[in-house]
Amino acid sequence: MKKAMFDYKAPVSLIKHCFLFLLLVASEQSFAQTRGKVQVMAPPLFDTLLAKRATLNAGGGGGGSGATSGYSSYGYRVQIYNGSSRSAAFSTQDKFNKEFPEMRTYIIYREPNFKVRAGDFRSRIEAERMKEQLKAWFPIMFIISEKINPPKTVITND
């Protein structure tokens, strides 16, 4: 039995015309969209919840202190001590707190080492500036990227 062969080839002009027709139809559909107006319908308690969240973040309630309430984000800290001596870690923290009382310090213990980290910097540039200031007191320092506590927000009723 012989194979049936299909020898018909579509002319190139017919293919071009079909492609042009499809392109025109597709572009017409994209331009047929009309611009509308978006209206957001919020439940009546939404504004009160936003106000309550602002007071909780400011430290006005929620059972936590203002320094630890709120949301953490990633940032940078300067590590000023890393060693196995607990007393050396606490003395390093005291030394830092005497020079910079407004800045928070954190002691982290990961067996077998204690680490003292200072600051809650949102950008690496701020951490580098602090590192330059601390060179006189602490010769070996590192900048560590980790979750930080956000600074206290000031809410004004303007």
Rank of each mutant, 00 (worst) to 15 (best):
K2Y: 11
K2L: 15
K2D: 13
K3W: 12
M5L: 14
M5Q: 14
M5T: 14
Y8T: 08
L14D: 12
I15P: 02
K16Y: 09
K16F: 13
K16H: 14
L22Y: 10
L22G: 10
L22T: 13
L23K: 05
L23E: 04
E28T: 11
E28N: 09
E28A: 07
S30A: 15
F31S: 10
A32N: 03
Q33Y: 06
Q33P: 00
Q33M: 06
T34S: 13
R35K: 05
G36L: 08
G36T: 10
V38N: 14
V40T: 14
M41D: 14
A42R: 14
P44V: 02
P44L: 07
F46W: 09
D47A: 12
D47S: 08
T48N: 06
L49F: 04
L50P: 01
R53L: 13
R53F: 12
L56H: 04
L56Q: 04
A58N: 02
G60I: 07
G60S: 11
G60T: 04
G62P: 00
G62A: 02
G63N: 02
G64I: 03
S65I: 13
G66R: 10
G66D: 09
A67L: 06
T68E: 15
S69W: 01
S69H: 07
S69Q: 08
Y71V: 12
S73W: 03
S73C: 07
Y74L: 04
Y74D: 07
R77L: 04
V78P: 01
Q79L: 06
I80H: 00
Y81T: 00
Y81H: 01
Y81A: 00
N82D: 11
S84E: 08
S85R: 05
S85D: 11
R86M: 11
S87C: 08
A88N: 14
A89C: 04
K95F: 09
F96G: 00
F96W: 04
N97K: 06
E99I: 13
E99D: 07
F100P: 02
P101M: 11
P101T: 03
E102N: 10
I107W: 05
R110G: 03
P112Y: 03
P112A: 04
N113Q: 14
A118W: 00
A118E: 01
D120L: 02
D120N: 15
R122Y: 03
S123A: 09
S123E: 09
R124M: 04
R124C: 02
R124L: 10
I125V: 11
I125K: 07
K131N: 07
K135M: 06
A136H: 04
I140T: 11
I140M: 06
I143N: 02
S145Y: 12
I148D: 12
P150W: 01
P150I: 03
P151E: 05
K152P: 03
K152A: 09
T153Y: 06
T153I: 14
V154Y: 07
N157C: 08
